[in-house]
């Protein structure tokens, strides 16, 4: 079992995940305190990867719930399997006939049917979705709730019960409690503010773009084919792109893709030709690519001057 924070780092390192001290501390505490961990940060810095690697490193199964706008309980928690229920009623028609055949009145028949009701509302017909799976699992699991900021605020409120007590209420069955408390990881790209109530129940770690040395280590680990010199050049360029005013900055995963591309293309250095052909791996907007090319070729990034006024009104001081 985990004894120290450095154990977490070593454990993640076995999965080729380089964890910063922040991440290891937060992960350690999440495991020890049994609280969910909320990881926030720009896209592509390894938030989801953290959960995957943690699952692999600890040998637990990973259950993933991808959030999206309009996600509701039936998709996240459970659903009654109507089709199976229908099928069973069809198949059991004779049996039902036997049961109800000698009923004298309608009320009597209904009462008899009601007595058998729990056959149809049992766990047999319950279709478990990720959250219920994680809670009812016989083995300890890692539950990843990905991009929680995409889900609606009402879904967030619904998560509160699950995250604080690790239990779920199904009206027909009662409350199901977790056999093993799952390790829960929530990720968010911070496109909207999450509610205080949710944040209060979680530990928090903010994962930002790594600095040059850290990113270099990631690249060398993930793309061993790249020479040390080229790797440094590439990472330096990516770091420079991140300081520019772009619509979307290249993420770590895109750096890795780009490094792989450089290996595949057998590049020996990063020149204009290589950039021209491979910059679209890093940048995903045409305007970004153009801007990056211009400022990379001009050398130092220089502040962009606004164009000359078009039909502008050159007035005096602002007043009215």
């Amino acid at each position: 079992m985990l004894n120290a924070i450095s154990d977490v780092r070593d454990l993640l390192a076995t999965q080729q995940y380089i964890a910063s001290d922040e991440i290891s501390t937060a992960m350690f505490l999440a495991d020890k305190l049994g609280k969910p961990l909320l990881a926030e940060g720009p896209a592509g810095v390894g938030k989801t990867e953290l959960a995957k690697c943690w699952a692999k490193a600890t040998g637990y199964a990973l259950i993933r719930l991808q959030c999206y706008e309009g996600l509701d309980e039936t998709k996240a928690l459970y659903e009654w399997e109507y089709a199976k229920q229908l099928l069973y009623t069809q198949l059991l028609r004779d049996k039902l006939g036997d049961l109800l055949g000698d009923a004298t009145s309608l009320r009597d028949a209904a009462d008899r049917l009601a007595a058998e009701e729990d056959v149809f509302f049992s766990e047999r017909f319950l279709l478990p979705r990720p959250l219920l799976q994680a809670i009812t699992s016989e083995q300890p699991v890692v539950l990843l709730i990905d991009e929680i900021d995409r889900a609606d605020a009402e879904f967030e409120a619904f998560l509160l019960e699950v995250l604080s007590d690790f239990q779920v209420s199904v009206p027909e069955l009662g409350t199901l409690k977790a056999k093993h408390q799952p390790v829960v990881l929530l990720t968010s790209n911070n496109t909207r503010e999450l509610s205080e109530a949710l944040k209060r129940r979680c530990l928090y770690v903010h994962i930002d773009y790594p600095d040059l040395e850290a990113e270099l280590r990631v690249i060398q680990l993930k793309v061993p084919g790249l020479t040390a010199k080229l790797a440094r050049e590439a990472v330096e360029l990516v770091q420079r792109l991140r300081t520019m005013d772009l619509r979307k900055h290249p993420s770590v995963s895109e750096t890795i893709d780009w490094a792989r591309a450089l290996v595949e293309l057998n590049s020996s250095q990063i020149d204009a030709q290589t950039l021209n052909t491979t910059l679209n791996v890093l940048l995903k907007h045409e305007s970004d690519i153009q801007r990056a090319k211009r400022s990379l070729q001009a050398g130092e990034p220089r502040p962009e001057r606004p164009e000359r006024p078009r039909g502008g009104y050159r007035g005096g001081e602002l007043n009215n």
């Binding site: 001290d21 922040e22 501390t25 350690f28 505490l29 944040k199 530990l203 903010h206």
Partner: peptide, 23 residues
């Protein structure tokens, strides 16, 4: 309690993870 106070950096990070919920 879990992280210990012997190493100042981890002590700080443990506090940060549990107290600060906003970047």
């Amino acid at each position: 309690e879990q992280a210990g106070i012997s190493e100042r950096r981890f002590f700080a990070l443990a506090m940060q993870a549990s107290l600060i919920k906003d970047a």
